Simulated assay, not measured.
Amino acid sequence: MISFFRKIRQKLLQENRITRYLIYALGEIILVTIGILIALQINTWNTNRLERIQEQTVLKQLKEEFESNLEQIDLKIALRDNIISSATEVLQYIDSKTEVSKDTLFQKMSPIVMAPTFDPIQNDILQSEKIQLIRNEQLRRVLANWPTYVTELKEQEEEWVKLYNNFTSPYLIEIGLSRDLNLYFYDNPKNLN
């Protein structure tokens, strides 16, 4: 192919047809440019295709991670609801001055010894450049804020644990209920689930 074009060029130069040679050279330049543009377009298409495949992989990993985190947080919410429900019942006993047995009272108070904490699975996708593969801008923004939400939740949990360790637990020890509450806590299967 190259020799064919070389022969045409040489023939035009030998015949002193400069105008035709320039037109031919211009045509050859246009042909090469079109070839380069087609190659670039194919390369861009292939790069985009590979990025979409990577995006799907990243989204699949994130989905699995967040489903696992959601399962964990649902469990923690249920535990906290149990603590709140039990504490509310104890407060109702106090407010209404209802007499209850020691066993009932300890059974209702036992969930307060729990300190359920959320420990999410976090992989390096959110901190890496892979997050840029996600085309959905809103999703990318929410994912970028996820570590902040987790940090805020952990800070709230730490406050709860400090409150329990600094005030509730010492008070329960002081009035002699700590050991019994712990025994009731571990005897109740609902607390251990």
Rank of each mutant, 00 (worst) to 15 (best):
66 F>S: 07
25 A>T: 12
147 P>L: 06
5 F>C: 04
140 R>K: 01
104 T>N: 11
180 D>H: 06
56 Q>S: 14
39 A>F: 13
126 L>A: 15
80 R>D: 08
179 R>Q: 11
63 K>D: 07
70 L>R: 10
90 V>G: 12
91 L>H: 12
156 Q>C: 00
45 W>M: 12
93 Y>I: 08
18 I>T: 06
133 L>Q: 11
163 L>W: 15
142 V>H: 07
183 L>V: 10
132 Q>Y: 08
34 I>G: 03
172 L>A: 05
151 T>D: 04
37 L>D: 04
67 E>R: 14
27 G>L: 05
58 V>K: 03
159 E>D: 09
190 K>Y: 04
109 M>P: 02
131 I>G: 08
105 L>K: 10
48 N>S: 10
31 L>W: 01
69 N>L: 05
35 G>H: 01
183 L>N: 13
183 L>K: 11
84 I>G: 06
69 N>A: 05
72 Q>W: 08
156 Q>P: 00
97 K>H: 06
8 I>K: 01
61 Q>V: 15
125 I>S: 01
173 I>Q: 12
83 I>E: 12
27 G>K: 03
49 R>Q: 14
154 K>W: 04
81 D>S: 12
31 L>T: 04
167 F>K: 10
74 D>V: 07
42 I>H: 06
104 T>H: 14
37 L>E: 06
82 N>R: 15
156 Q>A: 01
168 T>P: 08
109 M>E: 03
54 Q>I: 04
174 E>G: 00
162 K>V: 07
181 L>G: 06
49 R>A: 14
37 L>N: 06
153 L>N: 03
176 G>T: 03
106 F>L: 15
159 E>W: 08
176 G>C: 06
112 I>N: 05
31 L>V: 00
134 I>V: 14
14 Q>G: 00
156 Q>Y: 00
67 E>K: 14
89 E>S: 12
133 L>G: 10
70 L>H: 10
80 R>H: 10
31 L>Y: 02
146 W>P: 04
112 I>Y: 05
138 Q>M: 09
16 N>K: 14
172 L>H: 01
19 T>P: 04
96 S>R: 03
119 D>G: 03
165 N>W: 14
51 E>I: 14
14 Q>A: 03
85 S>M: 10
178 S>D: 13
34 I>D: 04
128 S>Y: 11
118 F>R: 02
153 L>F: 00
8 I>P: 01
9 R>G: 07
35 G>S: 05
169 S>T: 11
90 V>S: 13
51 E>T: 14
8 I>M: 01
17 R>G: 10
191 N>A: 02
96 S>H: 03
105 L>P: 11
138 Q>K: 12
64 E>K: 10
32 V>D: 07
144 A>E: 02
33 T>V: 09
58 V>Q: 01
120 P>L: 14
42 I>M: 09
